[in-house]
Design a protein around this nucleic acid. Structure first.
Lengths: 346, 346
DNA sequence: CAATTTGTGAGGTACGTTCCTCATGACCAA
DNA sequence: TTGGTCATGAGGAACGTACCTCACAAATTG
């Protein structure tokens, strides 16, 4: 027996009474409008903390007669996983009409920090409450996030984090752990030899994190395996194919390939073309048509996955919390690292 | 570029205008209050469908000045997974205060259909909008679900479904698929011998479904494996221990054990006590302290899991959709079947 | 044909928040 | 003193829905 939520929730009126100010002043503080002395603002904040005031997001949206506007800035191009994410946004956009959520999806040129920065700079707080981005860790992007944040547009990073930026929250898997898991599996698959590592771009934080985790476990637990690379495919199938082909040709002792980026269609093509491929253990990321085909054919042994629908769902939860305004840390459910073999394809 | 949700949403006023009736009548139809001729009601429904009216849940809750009340009826007792579910409810209750959700958790005597039926009968629509239950497929429970549903209390089944009942929705994994996955893994682990199957209770639909899926794949794909059982542990560790001990003692050709119910602490104890255990492949369900320990020690090879937090989250989404009243089918994200080996424990 | 029931319309207040106008008093500089 | 700015209070309308009362007409009943 565990009764919860019996007491009436505190409202702005309660805050006003507790702080000994008028409703108008509470409202000014809440929506940080000008015309409040710092002393008074502090009184109000203290009262809010004291009585545990929690602003009612839906009443707020109802009152201002508009939806919560979330803009997704995702890379376009050949990256199938980004396509899945976009699909998840669109699916979600259908059903979110009833929840006062207005989603907009923009696809940008991939691996183009300046383009992303420009897109971010174009988001005015009047049009967009929260931007959800996946981008690389470059000074131009970091600066644009900083500017958006100052302007009043909350930024949430998706898939690839920008840890030392003004972003409010990160939604994605624990990438170092994913790299470690890959290494742990690879080590069990093949006791010795060389393991080629292909990344998309080392400017992407998720790729760097996976690489670090992979390298650490390989070095610590599997001294028989030697890491080759990392090579950069720029997440392009053609480049991934070329790199994998070269790895297979140049290294007779190649025991495994870990593609921690995208471009898996190219990887699968390279493996299909080589007769040595069956002897090489392959681990890749993200369940997409290409990796499914790879698992089916036996070209790929394991796929580590992050569920796009989960990520979009949690990103929206984060956006809602950001819109609540307070500086309280955003909390979301962690995204799980899915492990798929040929037998448990969903 | 994909702008969504630009047009103003339809309101009750729009419905009234479109149907050529007054606001009061729309309201009466919407909340099925008496005093509307069937013909008029149909006109209103038609108008709602025509202009795509979607009732605003939060405005509705705001207007009636109360939260959405959801009551969870979960089994008490030694079942660790049910404990995890309860924990997930409590975690969620903390954070859901801001979302006009009032959660209540009640723990009932496990495997007691009459107790569950009584608890359901005690839920008045004034107190509870939606009941989330995990219960067995018995006439008394089915009848109580029917009564609750008639009374205006929506019922959502969790973990274990009641397919031919008045329940509005089921939240849980695809249990036949889980059983098939277990069989597929078991078949790869051991080519021939006997596989003992332990269930909690065959009155539980999830256990029956897993058993059916397991048996089907075993029979179809692995003729070398012979299914022993199913035995019933009633989800009690002591009984599971006794059953496992007997399986190990009585069957020299025992190649594997599949425990598709709870009581894993007993299973692990039995395995620890037998020197043959290392030669027996073991698959169990739900990541709990007991199964974690089993994976760690090597007693258990694979754990198939359903994430309690995900299940509670989706159950609440289902409850919200039920509260919207309409007969539209409830849609939720599917719960994934998690596969855990020693190496990817989270 | 009158009495009663039933279907429907009209209109109001409330929920918690936003955002507007208008009024008031304090303080400061010219 | 006068005028100006600034912080604040008071009050109200609006958002979409719920739910209430009152009024009135049509349909049903005796």
């Amino acid at each position: 027996m565990n009764e919860i939520g019996s007491r009436r929730r505190a409202t702005v009126h309660d805050v006003a009474r507790a702080a000994g100010v008028s409703l108008a002043t509470v409202d000014r503080v809440l929506n940080n409008r000008p015309g409040v002395r710092p002393v008074t603002a502090q009184k109000v904040e203290a009262a809010m903390a004291a009585i545990g005031f929690q602003r009612d997001l839906s009443a707020s949206l109802l009152a201002r007669g508009r939806d919560l506007r979330v803009v997704f800035l995702l890379p376009a191009g050949s990256n199938e996983f980004m396509g899945s994410l976009a699909g998840a946004v669109e699916r979600r956009a259908q059903s979110s009409a009833g929840e006062r959520l207005a989603l907009e999806l923009r696809r940008l040129r991939p691996l183009d920090p300046e383009g992303l920065a420009r897109a971010l700079d174009g988001l005015e707080p009047a049009i967009c409450d929260c931007a959800v981005i996946v981008g690389s860790e470059t000074p131009s992007v970091l600066a644009a996030v900083e500017r958006a944040s100052r302007r009043g547009v909350a930024v949430v990073t998706l898939v690839s984090d920008l840890p030392n930026s003004a972003r409010r929250h990160f939604i994605g898997i624990d990438n170092p752990a994913a790299g470690r898991t890959a290494a742990s599996l690879m080590g069990r698959f093949c006791p010795k030899g060389a393991v080629g590592v292909i990344a998309g771009s080392l400017a992407l934080r998720d790729h760097r994190d996976r690489l670090d985790g992979f390298g650490a476990v390989l070095a610590r637990e599997f001294p028989g395996l030697q890491l080759l690379g990392p090579l950069e495919s720029h997440d392009e199938p053609a480049q991934a194919e070329a790199l994998a082909t070269r790895l297979l040709a140049d290294h007779p002792d190649l025991a495994g390939i870990y593609n921690l980026g995208a471009g898996n269609a190219g990887l699968v093509a390279a493996l299909a073309a080589s007769e040595r491929a069956r002897a090489v253990r392959v681990i890749a990321h993200e369940l997409t048509p290409a990796t499914r085909a790879g698992l089916d054919s036996g070209a790929i042994d394991v796929v580590l996955d992050q569920n796009p629908d989960h990520e979009i769902r949690e990103a929206l939860r984060a956006a809602q919390q950001c819109a609540l305004g307070s500086a309280a840390p955003v909390t979301t459910d962690p995204i799980e690292i899915g492990i798929f073999l040929r037998d448990n394809l969903r």
